[in-house]
Simulated assay, not measured.
Amino acid sequence: MSKTDPNALKVTIDNHELTGWQHYSYHAGIDLIPWQISLSATLHQLDNHDLEFTVGASATVMMGETLILTGYLVSTSESINAHGHTMSLIIGSKTQDLTDCSASLVTSDLTLGGNENNGRTLSNMVTQLCAPFGVSVTVDPQIDNPVIPLFAINLTETPYAIIDRLCRQVGLLFTDSAEGNIHITTVQKAAEKTPSFRYGDTIEEYEEQHSTTNRYSVIKAVLQTSNLLSSEPNSADYVSQIKASESGKQATDPGITRYRPLLIPVDLGDANFDVAGKRVLWEVARRSGRSQPITITVSGHRDEHGALYTPNTRVTLTKPNGSRADLVIANVTYEGSANGRRTQLTLLTSASLTPQPIVNKVNQKAGAAAQNDSARH
């Protein structure tokens, strides 16, 4: 009895299964929402090629027996020439509606059911944003579902933008998932079965970048006071005004040896500059990590343990010089064609993937009101 191909691609659109795809390209990532796949085939090789599909139809994609995408048919394209008749499709995750559409909610809609002292849990608020779009929410079991006491939204914001602020406020990530749902998580730690890669062994192609672009020798958080902006440089108290703008929060990048300073504003409502202190450290770590991505291409779509390569997975990499690095899969691309199946992985440091620390928007409004009141007096 022949074994079933564990990486055979099966696409189902409106309950009709399609196989025989000649080429596919699947993209998923920690920072990427929605995940999506593009496929193409000549009609004579595509099963059920006589079926007609309507864009917007529900769709799922399986890799062998593993679900990799749940969403909708985004677009179709037919190409006819002397060489044949080709059908191309793009399928995107259900989460596409969270990035494209307006939430159509006001602050009271999101906070109703809680109170100013106790608030509502993160998953509860995110669920309310996602539910109208048929998107569910899951939370990593290792995370204590945090309570957000106060939160404000803008009427025109997308659900994605609101979820992004909610998660950053409590230091969490949110990603797409194979089920087309939002998953709240953190940068993953090493698992019992951690994939490993070694140049010259499992790696077909290896690329490591190093850049000083968008990196700075020192990053400082400063106050944007109205006096500093309105006083002339020759004012008698100019020096004291400059010193008053300093928050004392700064971080240095040891990889940048020449003088390259960057000033970032302290957000209104940042009591004791706590968020500013976290922000400057985050800026250095993110900029440093993102300037040194490693991209590898490996055969197939599964690791040595039989699991599909997925975003937010810890891996161990042995570089061409023999050094080892503990990295995280940030982006995954599955490519399949007549030339075989390959996976391209973008690997980053865990510190470069953590969310940006921010001040609660309610606190920002309170800070702005306090500043305006102070200016009037």
Results as ranks from 00 to 15, higher is better:
T343P: 09
D270S: 08
A152N: 04
S288D: 11
H83M: 06
H16N: 11
S77L: 03
D109T: 02
D326S: 14
S337G: 08
F273E: 01
T66D: 15
V222C: 09
V74C: 02
G306C: 10
V137P: 08
P141I: 00
P233Y: 07
S104M: 10
F53P: 13
W21T: 08
K189H: 13
L327V: 12
E232A: 14
A276F: 00
T202H: 02
K193A: 15
Q169E: 14
G306Y: 11
V275W: 02
S230F: 07
V61P: 08
M87C: 07
V170M: 00
P146G: 01
C130N: 04
P254G: 05
D109N: 13
A285K: 11
A276Q: 01
E204Q: 15
S374I: 10
G300L: 06
P320L: 03
T343M: 06
Q371M: 10
N181C: 03
G92N: 09
L345M: 06
R290Q: 15
N214V: 07
Q36S: 15
L73V: 04
L317H: 07
F53I: 10
T4H: 04
N321M: 02
V147A: 08
N234W: 08
I242W: 09
L166I: 03
E157F: 05
D100I: 02
T346R: 11
R314F: 07
Y259E: 11
D140H: 02
M62N: 12
V218W: 02
K365Q: 13
